[in-house]
Each structure stands twice: as C-alpha cells, then as structure tokens.
Amino acid sequence: MAALRDIQNKIAAVKKTRQITRAMNMVAAARLRQVQERTERFRPYAAKFSEVLGSLSEGIDQEAHPLLAQPEQVNRVALILITADRGLCGSFNMNLILQAQKFMTQQKSEGREVAFYAVGRKGIEFFNRRNVEFAEKLPGVMNVVDFDLATQVARLGLGAFLSGEVQEVYLLYSRFRSIVSQIPTVEKLLPISPEAAGDEDESSQEYLTEPSAEEILVDLLPRYLNVRVYSGLLETSTSENAARMAAMDNATKNCKDLIQNLTLAFNKARQAAITTELMDIVGGAEALKAG
C-alpha cells in the first residue's frame, strides 16, 4: 500500500528530527551550565572590582579622567552589538537585531551618526544583507567567551572613544533574567557614569595608595570597561544557550505531537485497508455460497 508506506517514511523522518533536536537541547543545556559556571567564577572579581572602584572614585574630580568626562556635544556614537554565532535559538538573535535597529533609528533621528560594531555571526549576517556599514566585525567568537575576547571588544570601543571618533559608546547585549526570559539591553559604556562606577558607599574605606589615587584610577577605569564587557558577553552567551534550550525543547515536543498524529493516521489507514480486504473476502465467500 503506497499511502501506508508514505506515512511510515514520514514517521521515520520526524523521529530522526526529534533525535537531533533532543541532542541539541542537551548540548545547549550542558553549555548553559558551563557558561553559568564561568559567570559564577567571575562574580568575585567583578564584585571586588566595583567595590574598589567605588571607594576610589569618591572625592575625585570627575573631569580628571577622559573616560569620566561627559561630552558637551554628541554627534557620533558607537554601538557594540552582541549576538550569537548560530541560529536555532528561537527569536533570540532577532530580538537583539531589532533592538539594534531601533537604537540606530533613534540616534539618527537625533542627528547622531552611529559607528556600528558587531560581535557574533548572526548580527553581522543580518546587517551585511542590508548593506549597513561596519566599523568592525568579530564573527565566530561566541563559541568560547573568555576574558581575552572581552578585552578585545572593550579595546575597540575604547579606541574609538579616545581618538574622539565617537563621543559615546553603547553596548547592546542580552540580559539573562531566567531560562524563559532574556531581555535585549542597551547600556552606556563610555563615558563611564559616576553612578555606575561608584555603587558602593556604606563600607567605603580610606586607602593609602601607590601611586596616587588619580593614577590608579587611570589604570583602573579601562579595566573596568573589560569587566563590563565581559559580563555583557557572559550574559549574552547564557541567554543564547537558554533560548536554544527552550527552542529545542519546543521542537522536540512538536515532533512528539507530529509522530502521534502520524501514527494515528497510519493506524487508521491500516485498519481501513484491512477492512476493505475483509469485505472483499466476505463478499467473495457470499458469492460462492450463493452460487
């Protein structure tokens, strides 16, 4: 029976798809754990860092450092967009891309130009197709998110800012709220706002410093940028894997439903075939008896 064979083939194909989506779900889960571990290990560093920075930036002239100086006029800003390298993670990349487009439109409506930096292949592909100009692109780096990558990305923004090419630098990444909720978030990296830097005030300590507090700050602020970018990268990577896990879980469920429906159809067709055959036999027997 041709119809029966067709349904059977389809069932086999869907089962294979389910196998793949299930495997991808597990891979994403494993990666998610890895990235979360990384985030966990990074936390003490980040916490200590903002604590030190907080107590240090008190009583220091905000204009003392170029990274703290608020610009008088902004006519060009940099946007660093972080997306994943790979798809199959639901609307994760698209959400980030849409947010980037919104940001650029908004900046343009305020008469500012946007220098566009993209990290991660998906964002690059999208804007490439739309002939958006890139200041710099880093494809294929989101597989292993480490501190070196953060330094590299931070340096791009820092370079553009210090050379006066842009007056503000923004980072667009995906904030990880929970397994089911990841939120595209725009954050101003540069100039560093004093509130962001000095979030510690209750246990602030008077330090003896070597060299002077100002000089330490000069050393510390660029590193602070690395810390911010690294946590952005980690959050995005966490979000990506969470999104992929959810997407693959859904796909696996859909496969299950499909298989169920197909099996039902198969059984019905088989029963129909048997019934027809029986009718034939009974009809034949009746005819013989009559004869």
């Binding site: 240090l56 300590q205 330090y207 003896l208 070597e210 060299p211 330490i216």
Partner: peptide, 19 residues
C-alpha cells in the same frame, strides 16, 4: 610588584591600594 616597585605586606598593614 607594584608600578612603583616591590612592596611587602604583613598582618595589620594600613588600608592600602596599589597598582
């Protein structure tokens, strides 16, 4: 090793921050 040279720290050092 600080940027201004080596320094040693023992218990009870005054609060100190170095590059």
């Amino acid at each position: 090793t600080g940027v201004d040279g080596e320094f040693g720290v023992l218990h009870g050092h005054v609060p100190f921050l170095a590059s």
